[in-house]
Every structure is written in structure tokens, then in C-alpha cells.
Amino acid sequence: MTYEEFADSRLSALLRYATMLTGDPHSAEDLVQETMVRVQLNWKRVQRSDSPDGYVRRMLTNQFIELRRGSWWRRVLLRAEPDPSVPVPSDHADRSAERDRVWSMLSGLPRRQRAALVLRYYEDLPDQEIADVLGCAVGTVRSSISRALATLRTELVEAR
């Protein structure tokens, strides 16, 4: 597989995944762009791996979790756009604001926990594969997901 073929077939899925991770399309674009440049730089290694797809997902996830090291976050900070995930309060927006509360609460979670949630409830990966992506034990995946769910549950109850 060439890099071009990989990008053709996988770019949209990566963008969707990055959107769920970052919660905002601009950050998602930057994250994917940064990752794909690295993918191209290291294409031979990516190609040789058992699953190029999984390898790239791991790269992107790491980049997201360790965002202080990458430059995409600096760009996001510099851009300083209002966070679109925070609902603007208005009368007719109340219903959707209520519905989007879970979504906006996700941004308050530690990045690792958010990534675990996205991998399980959006990408539908089994816990073992989530552990592979995050580079930790299956037990750690389960505990961080249950901790994240507990946080969300508490906040939802408080908000209502």
C-alpha cells in the first residue's frame, strides 16, 4: 500500500475519530494534519507494521494525549476561537443545550479518559484493542472508563 492509497481510504475515518477526540472540527483538522505529516515521514515503518491502520490510530491518539509536545495545540491556543462545544444559552436552544450537555462535559475529562470513551463508544473497539491503542493494560482501560462514566454521571445529576 502506498501512502496515497492509505490517505484515500483512511482520511475520513481519521477525521471523524479526531473530531470525537477533540470535540471541535478545527482542532481535529490540525491533529490529523500533524499526524499525517508524521505518517509520511515514517511511512516505511508504518507500512511494515502489522496493521498500518492501527499504527496510525495509535500515533494520532498519542499526539492528542501528549498535546503539549505537538504544535497543533499551540496553534489551537493561538487561534483562540470560542469553543463551539459550549452551548450558547438562549430560549430555543435550551433543548439542544440539554442534549449536548454530555458532549460539552467530555472536554472536562482527562484526555486519556476521553480517548478511552471514544474508542469504546464511538469506534466500538473491544477493551483489548483499546489497551493496545493507549499502550496500557486492559484493567487500566476498564478502570479509566468507569471513572470517566462516574464523573459524567455526577455532573449530569448536579446539572439537572
Binding site: 490517505a7 482520511l11 477525521l15 473530531t19 483538522e29 494534519q33 499525517m36 505529516v37 467530555l106 463508544y121
Partner: peptide, 22 residues
């Protein structure tokens, strides 16, 4: 959570411009 993720799928940026930026 599942519903929230699904609802926000349409926020995903289009691939064409991203490809150019890359």
C-alpha cells in the same frame, strides 16, 4: 454518550481541504 458521538459526526471536516493542507 453514543448518541452524543453520533450527533456530532456531521461536525467532521471534509477530507478534500484537509488533504491539501497535509
Amino acid at each position: 454518550l453514543r448518541a452524543a458521538f453520533e450527533r456530532h459526526e456531521d461536525q467532521t471536516p471534509a477530507t478534500g481541504p484537509v488533504r491539501d493542507k497535509i
